[in-house]
Design a binder for these strands. Sequence first.
RNA 1: CGCGGGGUGGAGAAGUGGCAUCUCGCCUGGCUCAUAACCAGGAGAUCGCGGGUUCAAGUCCCGCCCCCGCAACCA
Length: 486
Amino acid sequence: MSRFYITTAIPYVNAKPHIGFALELVQADVIARYQRLKLGGENVYFLTGADENALKNVQAAEKEGRSTSEYVAEMSDRFRSLASALNISNNDFIRTTEQRHVKGATKLWQSCKPDDIYKKSYSGLYCVGCEQYYTEDELVDGVCPDHKVKPELVTEENYFFKLSSYQHKLEQLISNDEFKITPESRKNEMLAFIRRGLEDFSISRSRERARNWGVPVPGDDSQVMYVWFDALSNYLNALGYAANDSLYKEFWDNSGRKLHVIGKGITRFHCIYWPAMLLSAGLPLPNEVFVHGYVTVDGQKISKSLGNTVDPVELVNKYGSEPVRYYLLREIPAWEDGDYSEAKFKQRYESDLANGLGNTLSRVTNMIEKFGNGKFIQAEGVNAYTPAAASAIEIAMRSYRFEAALLAIFNVIGEIDAEIEKNKPWEMAKEEKFNDIQKLLSKWGTMLLDVSHYLKPFLPDAAKKIEDKLREHNITKAEPLFPRLN
RNA sequence: CGCGGGGUGGAGAAGUGGCAUCUCGCCUGGCUCAUAACCAGGAGAUCGCGGGUUCAAGUCCCGCCCCCGCAACCA
């Protein structure tokens, strides 16, 4: 029994989703769909969701003069809609204000080794305006960079987690890939971080400082959990950890594979804090964390002050989900940062999707209609992908190099075009060599089916359209799969 | 001496020792089945700079310059 559990991170919902999170959803979706094809749909479980407990959410709601719970509910819906706009095949969507989550986070806290959670007083420079702590060097001339006020020295008693006692174990698990971090550069970063020495970290806030928002610390009403402590437990909670549901047993508490897909900014939380918490609670660890890079827009970091945010839902409304999926997967190197620009988007759309895949389908189906009587018979022994190409795609998929996989998959489009040009079926038609044409059309159609097979995880709709078209009894010229933009 | 990533034809990238590759753009030619799409050929790179190792270096070593991230309770 081979089970596969995959998750995205749960973004906090203080603003509408931007294109960076769309990247994560799409990458995770490709992996999920790919695994379903291999393992069968029932053996794959794909989770995404939203973090509603972050203090930032409270601040954002306040700014709009709304109640926090109403605000986060509405914002979570926007993230849910993004997933559906992008045709993401998630099995579930968890909100961290749900009971199953609160109960699970509580259970996880209680399951940690008693020695690992202790009370300690913490003091730091706290800016009331920002509602956050600053270190000395973050201050500009001794004042908060945002509010230009001198922060107060605040002392508060919090619960701490004994991360320090897991230093050795974590180093071991990560370096021998028992807890695998992809790409390797991220693994090295984490190892370097661990070797510098791990300090215990605070896992609670005073209820006051948390603005009375969050998951209460069990047995201590004066404190709520530090948002990361509860947030990470969502991966267990969606499966029914608190109630020990069968889903939890099948997908987490067994030997199946568990993969987290995250952005580079939260690597430490997923690769250090999270496994330590699980170790403390005596729970199985995820097998792997895949860390993708960030999306820049026109070469610049996405930032609200620059006003260069790109709304992925708008993009989908304008161009459709598949072109957006394609762009994110093909143009952004999955292991690194990548850039979005409208010009590049249009370029990819035109050359790869419209003039490439779509046009080739039109050519082939049109010739089947015109020269082949609408009949297409799948060719025996034709493989669009040589064993070398197929294995290159496999390797790319297994290492989450989606851009490399797509490049290899799309090579075949060019090959079909070149063969059409070389054989000139339209001339053969004049000479009435219809049997020969039929053979060629069988071959090209079969090659297109091979392409669509590999495209399924990436472009599920287009793949299906290609397949459906070539399975028609009386094939007519296909409608443009991706119409030209102008 | 903080850590990491990167500097390859006009643009974007691939490329861990053996004639420098791909996509887009540009030029020329071809084709007309196709979404004015497609195919072939071509021009264009002293592979950031300076040394070194080697029969041979974009690729290994040393030094330097420049760009971009990250630097622990803050998503």
